[in-house]
Design a protein around this nucleic acid. Sequence first.
DNA 1: CGAGCGATTGAACCAGGTCAAACGGGGTGG
DNA 2: CCACCCCGTTTGACCTGGTTCAATCGCTCG
Lengths: 221, 221
Amino acid sequence: MNSRFQAIFPVDRAPKEVLLGDSSKEALLGGSTPPSCTRTPCDLDAGQQLYAAGSTGQAWRITAGVIRLDHAGHDGENRFASLAIAGDIVGCETLLFGSYTFDATALTPCRLQPWPEGDTATSGDGLLESLAQAQKRAADLLALRGGQASARVLGLIRLLADRSGQVILPTGQDIADITDLRFETISRIISNLQREHLLSPLRIAGIHATRSYRLAPGAFA
Amino acid sequence: MNSRFQAIFPVDRAPKEVLLGDSSKEALLGGSTPPSCTRTPCDLDAGQQLYAAGSTGQAWRITAGVIRLDHAGHDGENRFASLAIAGDIVGCETLLFGSYTFDATALTPCRLQPWPEGDTATSGDGLLESLAQAQKRAADLLALRGGQASARVLGLIRLLADRSGQVILPTGQDIADITDLRFETISRIISNLQREHLLSPLRIAGIHATRSYRLAPGAFA
DNA sequence: CGAGCGATTGAACCAGGTCAAACGGGGTGG
DNA sequence: CCACCCCGTTTGACCTGGTTCAATCGCTCG
């Protein structure tokens, strides 16, 4: 099921070409959009690439998980450009330009829905809402790159946590890219947060689920 | 002429209420949109507020100048949220929510056009283009908060410069807010750039036009 | 002229970066 | 089953770019 859109591992930070399994190549790169495909939800594991900049495909609404968007800076290097979380729409520039502007990679396990959904028209309020959402998200991301290091990381964790306070964090390097800190710094900060009991590893059947945490109720403020 | 939308000076960084001249109050705050007003371009001086978060009004396309958008963080303080430059559209969330999400303040002298213009429909490509633009701008702004301080400031200057290399810079404090540096640091960096001849004060009739500079051709890369 | 504001410059300090070493856990191959 | 490797993580020690505090300057406006 969720192998339909799998990219080969490990995904390089600045992939020059995207390697795809045979079964997924047509679905991702083909100009045609098979109806059976475009209507089907899609699951991604952490680290998997959803699409590459310049390639062709459809737009997606994120149901669960976190997607990282990258694009090439004018020095040619691939840089973190944006974050998309549950509720956000990614890749809708493809409706205008015919191809994706960013690379999209899952930072945590993700679930996606094709967009626009069913009878919802592309024009009008759907787009407008998406635009307003994007502006809000951009402002939030900007805030994650200002102020004290620990506040930035905590801000990101808050952004990613669900209402119950559970979070699946991206890798240290990804958090570092988002906050413009070093992964060593991230590691120290996460350790501190645990020491202060603002963050606790989430145990499932006694064992620590990878990068899963619970945010202390007091840490939401 | 350009007194129509003037706010009282100096504009506080976190204005609780916007003070307006009598003639402008209705134009900015009135629920009704006088046709003669909505079709007329609008000019702003540096430091003037275009609109306040929560107030009612129309959307604008920026023809010239730089607008700063702020919104209240969850600590209540007003924080830099986004930048809008020539070609960008600001305040279009008002079409969806009925009121502005951000405070909008001119950082340099600005010229604005009501949006949408004339026969251009609100829906479809216009919005989509605006969305793509916003995403691109957001990524650029994020880049201005990462890496070495001098590279950030130079990046902002590049963003604000026209093709000929002329720039009108915002105040040191505004540059500091955008790049998340201190204004003393900005001052030192601008001084350095001048020492290295990457930036030269623009003289009009022999006198230095306030905050106007020319970016050296080599500094565009 | 004085008030007020932004810009400039200097000097001391510290948050976070850098470099380096070691750890741990999951996957692979023998 | 174990040995090994690969990677992300952790921790320590040192260094530095940018902050902080403070004093001064220069311009504009009343």
